[in-house]
Every structure is written in structure tokens, then in C-alpha cells.
Design a protein around this nucleic acid. Sequence first.
DNA 1: TTGAAAGCGGTACCAA
DNA 2: TTGGTACCGCTTTCAA
Lengths: 348, 348
Amino acid sequence: MAVRLKDIARDLGVSVVTVSKVLRNHEDIGQETRDRVLKRIKELNYQPNLAARALVTGRSHLMGLIVPDLVHAFFAEVAKSVSQLLRAHGYGLVIASSEEDPDLEKQEIAQMLARRLDVLLIASSQRTGESFRKIEEQQRSYVLVDRRFKGLAANFVGTDDLAVGRMATEHLIENGCRRIAYIGGNTVSTALDRLKGYRSALSSANLRVSGKYTICRAHADDSGDVTGYRAAQELLALSPRPDAIFCNNDPIAMGAIGAILEANLRIPEDISIVGAGNVRYASALRVPLSSIDQDSHALGTRAAELALSLVQPKGDRQPKQVLLQPRLVARESSLRNRSGSLLQPMQR
Amino acid sequence: MAVRLKDIARDLGVSVVTVSKVLRNHEDIGQETRDRVLKRIKELNYQPNLAARALVTGRSHLMGLIVPDLVHAFFAEVAKSVSQLLRAHGYGLVIASSEEDPDLEKQEIAQMLARRLDVLLIASSQRTGESFRKIEEQQRSYVLVDRRFKGLAANFVGTDDLAVGRMATEHLIENGCRRIAYIGGNTVSTALDRLKGYRSALSSANLRVSGKYTICRAHADDSGDVTGYRAAQELLALSPRPDAIFCNNDPIAMGAIGAILEANLRIPEDISIVGAGNVRYASALRVPLSSIDQDSHALGTRAAELALSLVQPKGDRQPKQVLLQPRLVARESSLRNRSGSLLQPMQR
DNA sequence: TTGAAAGCGGTACCAA
DNA sequence: TTGGTACCGCTTTCAA
């Protein structure tokens, strides 16, 4: 059926070893033999069976990526850039979505380990880093992406989330907001750190940090728009009403915007909004959304680079942490007292 | 390092064959032996090496999915539901994004074939079905998703795109539009069929089909928002100006909306818009977007089911076509003479 | 420079 | 009910 090394060897009257060596550019093959083999490989459109190669070499040339939600544009962007860089280095990528469910994520990790994927890249929804110690016990390598765990010294590529929270909050303060609320999660490191940054910015500006204004929801990423919608409704019922909301991510911000407009309030005049992630369509939303950009492309690229370094035998085994700096992209949802409604219309 | 069948067999004083059979629930193993083996498997947390199994059985239990753009929410949704169903059946999914580039797509197909993925699911960006005949020559199975090819009788799961075009156009006509333009592509079947549906609806309503109002761009999906933005600008310069635009997909519609608002025109009063795909955030856009829903979830599920049927030995080899019916979701961007601005605020 | 033999970790077949 | 043997397609080692 499919062409094998054996077939080529037989055709040419050489051994399979010779063909195998030509295939992998070994030095010790004569030019003439090499040419004959290459010619035949072309003719038959031979493609090595990577499963067989994986079995003997112990490396599948396949990596795994688990994200909480593939439809969330931020993770889709990360997945895309990881995939691109890996492919450029001859690696394929198995992608799975955990739906923000820790148990499902564990199952997927187990599957990927069984498949002998060379490295796992995981934006984890677990509460603790326990599962990852198990991976380590099996001597398998992995990279945490975007989210990490306290006390787990693992390879990690993510954003400086303290800075994210601080940056968003400071921006809102600079634009005249004083009663700034937060909507986010309370389980994953990104949400916790952003919350911390938010609080620290408030304190620095001598603004009161009020528990009433802090809404933490477990599923802050999955269907974030619904979460944001409901949470914003709660905030609107408060007195005094907040005059700004920092949302843990853009889907939450979208939901919040929906709730606010539905209550016939204006954005940003009555309530300003800042999200995070700066998804592709943030500028096209009902109210163009200010967001803290996390450079999803760089995040994916750096994560893939780190993963590739782990399969290099020379590399040292010290876990490496990469922290990217976020960047504010201000749009209409947070810019008070400015000109028109079409600031930066096509900016991403 | 990792536990192997051999290790368990040695520990228990049985043969590897016995252990292997227990693992796969063969009938012909004594209850006592079976229990001992299962116990040991648990103890050692044994996980079969799927690469080895793949080599001997010839099935990798891995499928491949190639989409034009993973960040396009429509394809992300399809990918998610494909992945979910396959995982439930013990299959992993390798995902690649072709960036709407036919050559890149060919490379990815070659890679996946070399990896011996059991079935390939492809939303193809090719101009012709040529590459797929090659896959067939290699006796490998594949499923076309969303897009198909004239004259290629292949397994296919997609939308009735003629109906998409007709439905969108008829809706615009019913809402009082008379000079309806189209922005889309001219290479893939979805765009061509929707264009055909658009024309047929115009003709049925005795409206003139004008070439001026038809803008076809090669990259109608990849960065569709930029495409839509530019194309809409061209349309706005025409005289008489169109009073509606049917956009081949939602990203294009988003770009078009940007251009229209920038020109200080109103939607839907001056120009109505309908997109297609009904992406998750369509209702949260600057102008809540009317869209033809393609039920991406069902699309992915049906495609995965079809793919699974191909690895069942019993199944007949007749290529099967599944055509899903689209559904109009009308929102503010096309509803003239109606009440407020907040119709169906959170609808998806 | 070339190739014979062994083996990666499983499964299939058939005999015991 | 159990297991010996061959083999999947490739790489590694080492001798010729």
C-alpha cells in the first residue's frame, strides 16, 4: 500500500539502512548512491512512517496544547502561533480544549502522555499544580502557558498579570474614575494576580478597595460574556454605583457592556470599561473596547520556543520563566472627555 | 522509564500476549489471571504506548483537522465540536491552520499523511480538488468540511450555501432594500454558492443583478475584516449607493460596518448588513449583526461522526454528503422600521 | 562506504 | 485458556 524503505531498497539493490541514512542526511553515503536513492524517493513520493520512527526514537515529533476554551479568541490566537512555530520546526500539534474543567483537563493530559507527545503546553484550569508533579514523576516535559501555580517551579510563559491589573486600573483613575469595580475569577493565577494589581493601584491612588466592587466568578473565561453580563447587573444595583469596571478579560467586558447599555447607561460617560486580552474584534464591538494587550502572538511563539528547547538534548533542565509585559490599548470604552466616537477605528 | 507490557508480564510470570489481551478485553482470559493483571496495571499506572500500537495496527487513533484560520470564530467553533466528539471516542485531533494558503495547506496535508492520521478533515482553501485525488490514490480517507469541489465526489459536511445566499438576500428585500450588494470571495465553494443564491434571490424579486455591486476578493476569510472594510469603501463610492450589503461572512461584515460608520452613514437606515456564520460575538458588535447561522456545532459534530464512520470496517465506501440548513438570525443591522436598538441583546 | 542483526512496544495468528 | 513466534517500519550499533 504505502511505500516503505524496504521497497526503495529492493528496487535499487541496496539495504534499508542505506536508504534510511540518505533520508536523514548521514555523511557516510557515497554521492552516487545518494543520488539514486533520492531519485527513487521522489519518483515514488515516499513518505517515512513517522509512527514507526517515533517508536524507535522515542520521540513522536508531536506536541500537545490544552487550552480552557478554543473559541475564546485569545487562546485561539495563542494556539495559532504555537502551531505555526512548531510546524516550522517539523512538529505537529495536538490541540484539546478543557472547557475550563479541571477533570476534563486531567483526562486530556493522561491521553497526551499515553500518546507519547514530546512536550505538553498547558493553559491550565486546575486549582493546584498537583497533576503536574505527576507529569514530572514520569519524566515528561511540559510548559505552563498563561496560567501558573504558586510553589510549582515549572517552565512558564505568560503575562505580567500584576502589571495588567495595575495598568488597567491606573488608566481608569487617570480618566477620572473613582469607584472602580472588578469582575474576574478567583481560581487561576491570571485572575488572582490581576486582582492584586487592581487593588495595589487603588491603594497607591488612595482610593478605597471595596469588597462590594469585587466580583469573582469561578468560570471567568468560559462563556465569559454571560458571566460578565450577570456580574455587571449586580454591580449596577449597588449604591453608589461604580463608575468603572475592570474586566478580567474581553469576553467578560463584552457581557458587561451589554448589561450596561441595556440599563440605559452610557459608556464611558456613566461607566468606563477596560478588558484584557485585546482580542481581534475588540475595536468592532458595540462600544470599541479598551483592553490590556497581552500579545497573544508573542506568548504563543515564546511558549513554542521554550517547548522546542526542551527536546534539545544540550539544554539545561532548569525550569525557565518568561514574563511578557502587557500594553494598554485605549479605545472608546474608557476615554472620557475626548473627541468623537471613532477613535482608532480599525486598530487591533 | 515508562512501564511496558513486558514489565507487567515478567512481574506476574505470564506472557505479554496475556497482558495485551486483558488490556483489550479479550474474552479468552481466565478471570483470576485477568484480575491479577488488572491489579498490576493499576499499581504501576501502566499506559500503553499508542505509537507502538499504531505501528502494528496501522491506525493511529488520531485524526487531523485543517482550517483556513483558527482565529476565525466560526472555524474555532467547528474545531471545538469536532475535537469533543472525537475525544469521546478515543481519538485525538491534530489541528493545523492553513492561513487560507493553498500551498501551506498542501504541506500540512502531506505532514498529516506521513503521520498516518486515520482520517483528515479539511476546510480547504485549494482552488481545485486535485490534491484530494492524490489522497484517494493513497487509499487514505478524508472529509471535506464547509467547502467542497465541483466534480469531486467526496465525503462532505457543510451548509446549503445557496440557501445562505438566498435567505440573506430575501431578508434584505423584505426589509425594503432594493440595491443590494455582495462582498465575498470567488475561489471557494461557499462564496461561489452564496453568490449564486444572492443572484437567484434578486432575480426572483425582479431586481437587477449588477456587477458593480458584486465585490469578490481572493482572501475573503483570512483577515476578512480588512477585506470587508476596503470593499465597503468601494461600494460607498458608487452612485447610486447600495442600500444593503450581504457579506459572505461575519468578519467581512464587521469590516464593512466599520467603513460605513466611518462615512457617517447609519445602519440599517442608510445601509443594511447581513453576514454569515453567526459568530459568538455577533450580537455584541458595534451594530448587532444580522447573520445567517450555520450551526457550527452541528457542522463539527456531523463531520466528526462521518470521520468516525470511515474507520469502521463495516461501513460502505460510498462518499456521503451532509448538507445542513442555515437559519436567519435577524438583529439590528438589517431590521428597519422596528422599535429600539436593543433587540435580542444577548442572543447568540 | 555499506549492510546484517537486533530491537523499539505492541498485536495477530496459530499451536499447545 | 495461554503463549511462542513473526512482524509492523524504522533506527541504532557494529562489523565487514
